[in-house]
Design a protein around this nucleic acid. Sequence first.
DNA 1: CCGGTACTTCGGCGCCGGCCGAACGGTCCG
DNA 2: CGGACCGTTCGGCCGGCGCCGAAGTACCGG
Lengths: 236, 236
Amino acid sequence: MTTRDPQATALARFAALFADETRAACLLALLDGRAWTAGELARHAGVAASTLSEHLGRLVAGGLLAEERQGRHRYVRLADARTAQLVEDLAAQVSPGPAARPRSLRESSAGLAMARGRTCYDHLAGRLGIAVTDALTRRGLLRQDTGFALTETGLAWFASAGIVLAAHGRRPLARACLDWTERRPHLAGVAGAALCRHALDTGWCVRIGSERAVKVTAVGERALSDLLGVEPADLR
Amino acid sequence: MTTRDPQATALARFAALFADETRAACLLALLDGRAWTAGELARHAGVAASTLSEHLGRLVAGGLLAEERQGRHRYVRLADARTAQLVEDLAAQVSPGPAARPRSLRESSAGLAMARGRTCYDHLAGRLGIAVTDALTRRGLLRQDTGFALTETGLAWFASAGIVLAAHGRRPLARACLDWTERRPHLAGVAGAALCRHALDTGWCVRIGSERAVKVTAVGERALSDLLGVEPADLR
DNA sequence: CCGGTACTTCGGCGCCGGCCGAACGGTCCG
DNA sequence: CGGACCGTTCGGCCGGCGCCGAAGTACCGG
């Protein structure tokens, strides 16, 4: 007890940030990639504003959240893509997957929409994300059998679609992110983020509700079918 | 407080497994990929055997550890590669990296050996792991610019070296694992594990001490230079 | 300048969980 | 069969932490 492993101390302190239901609810909510105010999060988590204020202080001090003060509002969002990835990884580890999912009708409206399509911080997830990833793989634009990377034709496809893949620090161009509803990897990284942004900008998808769920529009269905051969049935 | 998000509850409970210094010390120790007895871990963590027994119970119940009873011994090891990856990710997130590392002479003997070369569950890490990964990349056997994947020539290289890459469930063939001393990705996944096993089996490396550190032998230095063009200077 | 709103700080409460030592049970060995 | 050893269970102690409400501060709008 005198001299403990400093790495173990740091790991425990860091993990403690996630080890509270209220903070976990905040982090999961912030996985939508947007900035929330302290009050919104307090209402979402169902605790007093004072309580949530302290939680935000911890999360910011721990480097998980970035804050931006605007007037009397305190906006917070996930610090970076790396943090979002970690939250996703943890969430995927604990979620039951589609097999064990209850068929309850109660959670269907929100739950089914999330399972159909959603954002995962800054890229597409759910059946939508899987359908796109599979289509990219089927067309030889993405290889998953030797790792997880775009091919030369894949790079050309992004360029021809007008989607710019800007090098962004050390963030990988393509990365696998485990989908917690489908239990299979979908495209993340710079390419995944650029594709998602393009889809939202061009109206292929629109956000529905106040959460992370997205819906594919008629235009989007057409575009995904034309450009990638995505079967509309895989989006339902 | 009446109806909380079940995913947030699950995430918090799961994270709580890591959020204790003693448990964290156990998980980090078990990153060597081997099985430890309860007594060894208790001594390592500096707590009473009774205390550690309860910790092991929680970690096993949480699915992080697999246990194997042999006579009056209770051996535990990390449950699987996926769990090991999560521990690694968390450890990498909290470790300071080489820049912020203290130049203390105290921790040098053990710390320097770990920084030079170690195992990361079942693959190589530290300067050794980075040197091998860089050499693979330099020779066009591994591509990191479009993601992280072996190339066709990379697959051929493994075959010609007599290293069998057996498909193993859903585990990816090649995966990037962030090295927490070098702050750069090294090779993990099926290929990383096979390469590490081969290195230990053929005597390219040997374990030193009781921890995760490994040392490159003269034979290994020669082999890595011949087969991959690894500069011996990069291993020091 | 004044009321309303958003957030923070503080004090106090209650509970959870990590720690230990003592007693117990199971296993190995002489 | 008895003693030594490894691990587990139990009771009890203590500290930390999450919670709230009340009071305080900062900001916006009229």
